[in-house]
């Protein structure tokens, strides 16, 4: 059967409309089916392939569900300690200024334990790209409260819903970061539909291209689902995300070419 399929006349290079990028290693991803991490990994690697910068890119994976991103991304990578990716990226970019350097981090990594490194790398205007996957939960450790967990949202460590009087407020770190003079491009995207994934990929392209300009941090937040942590099916999770996450974390650009985008 497989052999017959391989011989089908239609399988000619000129007929290919879509193929898996070579920059994704041919092995199963460790993400749950339906999780946004997989799409985010893919569009990032597609971007690097399209830019032809595989040999000049150094990536940094976090501690979180994407800790093994270095196994999936066919580029040279370092696995950082929890929250410290921007510190690694700072040094690498300064020591290899003609290389492209990105970090890929979850919300616990970037906005809780690593807040200091995130803010200071952004404030110094390091010439790097930060990809921030905001799923409002700690996926890897089994669904605990994250800094970005919404008010009232249930997690393993706020089982009755996040009570802001006790647990503090959800942190809009992307808004905060957009205010820093060291950031050049700050945007919030999602990857839960093909249209959104295409938009997010465009944003990642811009964020990587910006490194050629030497103007500071390009920061791409991707509001994403965690169907396992949220205890929903992937479809339910995407719907819940649209209804609950997007009103609080609205999609769109916050800062372009170093200028804050006016709210309409």
């Amino acid at each position: 059967m497989e052999e017959a399929f391989a011989k089908l006349d239609i399988r000619k290079p000129e007929n290919i409309v879509y193929k898996r990028t070579d920059l994704l290693v041919d092995r199963p991803l460790s993400y749950c089916p339906g999780c946004g991490h997989g799409v985010a990994n893919r569009i990032l690697m597609e971007t690097i392939e399209e830019m032809g910068i595989q040999d000049k890119t150094i990536g940094i994976s976090p501690v979180g569900c994407s800790v093994l991103a270095y196994d999936f991304m066919n580029i040279d990578m370092l696995g950082a300690a929890h929250g410290r990716a921007p510190a690694l990226a700072t040094a690498i970019k300064r020591l290899w200024p003609d290389h492209f350097v990105f970090t890929y981090q979850g919300d616990g990594d970037l906005a809780a334990i690593g807040t200091a490194e995130t803010i200071h790398a952004c404030n110094r205007g390091e010439n790097i790209t930060i990809i921030f996957i905001n799923n409002a939960i700690y996926g890897m450790t089994g669904g605990q409260m994250a800094p970005t967990t919404l008010e009232g949202m249930r997690t393993a460590t706020c089982p009755y819903g996040r009570d802001v009087k006790i647990m503090g407020n959800p942190l809009k770190i992307t808004e905060l970061i957009s205010q820093l003079p060291g950031t050049y491009f700050v945007t919030r995207q999602s990857v839960h539909t093909p249209v959104n994934a295409r938009r997010a990929k465009k944003a990642i392209r811009m964020a990587m291209e910006n490194q050629k300009l030497n103007k500071g941090v390009s920061f791409v937040e991707i509001v994403s689902n965690c169907n396992s942590g949220w205890k929903m099916t992937p479809n339910q999770a995407n719907k819940w995300m649209e209804e609950n996450m997007f009103p609080f974390y609205p999609l769109g650009d916050l800062k372009v070419d170093g200028k804050l985008v006016e709210k309409k």
């Binding site: 940094i60 370092l78 950082a80 300690a81 410290r84 510190a87 690694l88 040094a91 690498i92 290899w96």
Partner: peptide, 13 residues
Amino acid sequence: VASINMLYGGGGT
């Protein structure tokens, strides 16, 4: 904390 992780980045390259 940042210094040592900058070393991790630099040393790793």
